[in-house]
Design a protein around this nucleic acid. Structure first.
Lengths: 161, 161
DNA sequence: GCTTTACTTCAAGCGCACTTGACATGTTCT
DNA sequence: AGAACATGTCAAGTGCGCTTGAAGTAAAGC
């Protein structure tokens, strides 16, 4: 056997994580993961990086951007995988976000359900319609400020520039 | 009184829909909405366009892309707002999508809950880790973001904006 | 030694949903 | 009539999460 070390090449990490090598390099450029290098400059990853990637993917499923994940990771002591305590902290925070998101979607679902039989064409009565009509958005700003959240009127001011 | 017609200018439609004029032009370029023009070339919208926009927004909250909304609209008879029957068809279809999405999120939530106390660091055992089931990964991106309103602090306070 | 194969960097591109800017023209108010 | 403002078009830019391509280098296999 030639298992020189426990370190993984980028190809191996790619295969085992399901991500493309380019994605892993990208993550590394965002400091979401880290690597050592061989004498020749090739990346070598610790096995714990797999776990780290799993955490990133969990966060993405929760709906976080990679930047947000990076911010969360910045608090972490280790540069590999979070300790149990850290992971508890992260995951419970993320769970709250997830709950909020689910709740928001459920609200949309209910509005939609309501709407199906509601004679929606009489505008005034329809909750979906009304929440849309008032959906004042922040005039400018990056996409990530745009919420899913239909019902919480964000800023009741019209458009401005 | 100067209510010449029932038609809305783009500014009025923008204000009432909460979308920027540029977004309305963009939607029009995608054939999601339509307008007539004045002699001088300015857009005039029917009031039903508001309803149409509400439908678009509902679809977006469900998680559809504008292209998908456009495809759904292509089946519609009217170019203004859908008839009741059409709306029933659309919305019930969308509701199924929404249900699926909620279910997926609930699964993540449960995994996360499971994970919080699970000694997650022993990889093999962790459902989150193992469900690297990256199946539903169609170029998703940040479309399914959190709400605007960070009632739930997702990222540690280094909040930018 | 020599050929593959896997990797390196850097820059640019993509898809989505828009926004921004430049510049021209219509519409309204006085 | 003239100022003020709303709107028109078109091209390019933005943010996110990557991918793709070009050009070069390292490591593995024979």
């Amino acid at each position: 056997m030639h298992r020189k070390t426990d370190l993984l090449t980028i190809g191996q990490l790619a295969e085992r994580s399901g991500l493309a090598p380019s994605a892993l390099r990208f993550y590394e450029s965002l400091d979401l993961i880290s690597s050592s290098r061989t004498a020749g400059g090739r990346r070598r990853y610790q096995r714990s990086t797999l776990r780290r990637i799993a955490v990133v993917q969990a966060a993405q499923r929760v709906g976080l951007t990679l930047a947000e994940v990076g911010a969360a990771f910045a608090d972490l002591s280790s540069d590999a995988a979070p300790t149990r305590r850290e992971w508890e902290r992260l995951s419970s925070r993320w769970q709250a976000a997830l709950d909020a998101r689910i709740e928001a979607l459920e609200k949309v679902r209910d509005e939609l359900a309501n709407c199906i039989g509601c004679g929606c064409l009489s505008l005034r009565r329809c909750s979906l319609y009304n929440s849309g009509d008032r959906a004042a958005r922040r005039g400018v700003g990056p996409r990530w400020l745009l919420g899913d959240d239909p019902a919480v009127p964000v800023a009741p001011d019209g458009d401005r520039r």
